[in-house]
Amino acid sequence: MITCKVQAQNTQTLEITDKLLDSLSIYPQLSQLTIQSDLYYQLFLEKYPNTHEAYMSRSVPYNKTGEHAIGFAMLNRAVELAPIENLGYRAFVKLYMMHDYEGALQDGLRLDSITSYAKPGVWGEDMDMVIGLCYLQLNDLKNARLRLSNSINEVTKKNGKEWNSPRVFLYLGITLMKEKAYPEAIQVLDELIQMNPNYSEAYYYKAQCYSALKDLKNAEVSIEKCKSVYGKYGAERNPYFELPYQIYPSFLSKGL
């Protein structure tokens, strides 16, 4: 029988009992940051020690608050218990929150292999896009191009071009730019602009390509367009982490 009363300052007492644990299913209706929520998962895991959802859920606030040694200990246990369900989330955290591109790539490739190429999402993002981005960050441009192109082709085939994330076009454009395939990079970034004319990053990296081609006139046109779009719509942001290839105002004021 598990019975425990917890009371944080200025909050009501929460009595954690077997009955409460059973009635709440696996997700408590509490903020994930609270001591009560953490205690709930702790007690839940004492009672049901092989519940991967509880390990994964308990890891989330630790990783969000920079307590990564604790967060990863829990997340690793969740992956041990249920790799298909948790490898994608761990890859996502390693990639975006830790810049651990090799670790994220290993998780992504393992998930890809054990799901028989069914391509489940990686925490809401297309698997090939995430794997392609890992390759890009590791400067393996050939594999990055293959995976990112595959992501676009598969999503387009299944659901239509508009269902692709704008970022997959951005990452493919940057991959091609790094391969010095500037006309092809510009073509991909133009596709992105056609789908989303307010995507300021596309104009910025297009300007970089023109600059590399020494086409300063078009570079200037693109950077001016970027400034205009950025001024109105800003750039894509994520509150939890800096996005790869995120742009900032100082980037736009620097010479090409």
């Binding site: 944080a8 300052q9 200025n10 209706q29 509490l30 903020s31 609270t34 001591i35 630790y62 307590e67």
Partner: peptide, 22 residues
């Protein structure tokens, strides 16, 4: 209202408590 309070993690949560994770 209850689900919005805690499911939206990227707005202030006003937990009214010092002791929390982190």
């Amino acid at each position: 209202v209850r689900s919005k309070t805690f499911s939206q993690n990227t707005v202030p949560q006003h937990l009214n408590v010092k002791e929390k994770i982190g």
